[in-house]
């Protein structure tokens, strides 16, 4: 179970390893706040959908399992969207449509089909947590690079109260050389490509080591 949990980060990272959930990763990773908020939302949906789908796996007719998964996921995303709207209005505005697009995020449907439909409730919950944290980890990496290059610093606000700054860091040496392109789509694609190549390289190196 520990291995399952650990795999989600580097070896089978859902974003850089399996290329799942790319749309939201590219769009949301403009700032650290968005990345953390989106990561937590996806992780929550992933854990609960994995648990529910694993719990009902024996009574789900095999022919219509995909529709059942989609209905379960859509219900959970609606709940999460309402909670975020009620308690974190700033995050709700900055995530925008991508919050509701969690429904069609392939990480969730993919884990439901590949893992939760075949394993027990506890194992599925751990798998959901691991994959969700792997997704969050990927979002954090991209958003830190992009925010640093685009604004020369990183700031993190309390998601419940946007006027309260929890953490701020800025590199004065970098300020004159900020690249605003990195807050837009070009920077998103480039950063993603670099990280994807890096992760492929790490994986090929570690599999070579194992072969020896």
């Amino acid at each position: 179970m520990w291995n399952n949990f650990k795999n989600g980060f580097i070896k089978e990272n859902p974003v850089f390893g399996l290329y799942l959930g790319m749309c939201s990763t590219l769009a949301i990773s403009t700032s650290l706040n968005n990345a953390v908020g989106m990561g937590v939302c996806v992780t929550l949906v992933l854990i609960f959908s994995n648990v529910i789908i694993s719990a009902i796996r024996k009574i789900t007719p095999d022919e219509i399992r995909i529709p059942v998964y989609i209905v379960v996921i859509a219900t959970l995303v609606t709940i999460v969207e309402m909670l975020v709207h009620a308690f974190m209005p700033e995050l709700y505005t900055s995530l925008g449509v991508f919050l509701s697009l969690i429904v069609v995020n392939c990480i969730i449907l993919g884990r439901a089909e590949a893992f939760a439909s075949k394993n027990g409730v506890v194992a599925s919950a751990v798998d959901g947590l691991g994959m969700g944290l792997g997704y969050t980890f990927a979002l954090l990496l991209i958003s830190v690079v992009r925010e640093l290059l685009a604004t020369g610093g990183i700031a993190f606000y309390n998601p419940f109260d946007a006027t309260q700054q929890l953490f701020a860091f800025s590199l004065e040496a970098l300020k004159p050389y900020t690249i605003s392109l990195f807050s837009g789509s070009v920077g998103a694609f480039l950063t993603f490509a670099c990280f994807a190549a890096l992760f492929t390289w790490i994986r090929s190196r570690s599999s070579k080591k194992e072969a020896k």
Partner: peptide, 19 residues
């Protein structure tokens, strides 16, 4: 390069298209 083959290099091309 082998680690850039497939999706990574495709994403670089996408970045150039976006530009």
């Amino acid at each position: 390069l082998p680690s850039w083959k497939g999706n990574p290099v495709a994403l670089v091309v996408a970045a150039l298209m976006a530009l």
